[in-house]
Nucleic acid binder design. Sequence first.
DNA 1: ATGTAACACTAACGAACGTTAGATAAAGGA
DNA 2: TCCTTTATCTAACGTTCGTTAGTGTTACAT
Lengths: 185, 185
Amino acid sequence: MEKDLKERIKEVAVDHFNNNGYHGTTIRNIANEVNCSLPMIYYYYKNKKELFDEIIKKDYFDLLKKQATLLSTNNIIDFYTKFVYDLNSLSDYDKKVYRLGIKVYLSFDGDEELMGIMDEWEKTILPRHYQLIKPYLKNRDNDLAMVRTLIHLLETLIVSIVVKNRFLSEEEIREEISIVLRRCE
Amino acid sequence: MEKDLKERIKEVAVDHFNNNGYHGTTIRNIANEVNCSLPMIYYYYKNKKELFDEIIKKDYFDLLKKQATLLSTNNIIDFYTKFVYDLNSLSDYDKKVYRLGIKVYLSFDGDEELMGIMDEWEKTILPRHYQLIKPYLKNRDNDLAMVRTLIHLLETLIVSIVVKNRFLSEEEIREEISIVLRRCE
DNA sequence: ATGTAACACTAACGAACGTTAGATAAAGGA
DNA sequence: TCCTTTATCTAACGTTCGTTAGTGTTACAT
């Protein structure tokens, strides 16, 4: 019982929500694994939904925002390669939070309120990356399509690492990003 | 009560499994929406799990196999554009089945047995597409990376249409596929 | 007419769920 | 010393779950 009980509850909750979904997760199972009594969970969290919401609204979006504020280097391919590769070394907890967030993002879990928040975030993705890549673009007619393609590729790479829990080498990440950003080299 | 009751049960079940996950779906809710009594579901399906399994093992893989047997035209970009674009016009039922399958594929639902089946299928993807694209490749050192990148792009496009229920125009699909397959033109 | 199979129901079982009431024990300030 | 706060518990509430036992009802073959 080294760590804070509230923190331990959330860690176990992330694990269970991840493996069994919102409905498949029970407060009793969480309490059992944390080795505390059942009402202790209600002592720290109002109810099941608040526990789930805090993970998404706080922990998941903290992760996303931290990732979004990374600054581009002078090489756009280096930057995006690192952007993806670094996900490999996320802590187990962060990886699970990320995975749970993607689950909600794809509306595989959570409720409509959370989906709305996800939609808002999604709208910021294309403009943000476009601004980031802009300096490297050669002003061709399909510039926007290239950014869109990159984002689509990134999404699958992120899912591979975070959701399917695969390790992707820096080399293969770079290869694929280079194929899409070929004209920026 | 026009259609077969067994069929109607499955249709409603697909809907509920999709919206609420396996654990969030109850036999009572299904029976209510189908407007039949509760034991009728057990008359046609041994239990809840068998109902879920039949949807994935039969309907989802039928969809995948049908898609996999499509023959390439003489233009590889045309082929893949059509491959993705046609998903837009899948029936509502098929789209939901597809979505549910992807949910299991990403291990967001289902059990370990189903995950095993998904893993087996996944292994066939890269060789299959490589064989398909091979004739159009210029034998460069990053040919395999290109096929991998294409598959990764396709995955996101499929998720957009089937999971997020977006409509993708033929034009934007073609643009993105062309960016990846640029050297095959 | 009678038997049998297929289709449908009502009612209930036991188990598990989310949640809460209420007690206890320790700690610290007044 | 007494009171309040914080952290923890046991026990239970009412509800809903998956599942089944048991019973009709139709339709068709013999």
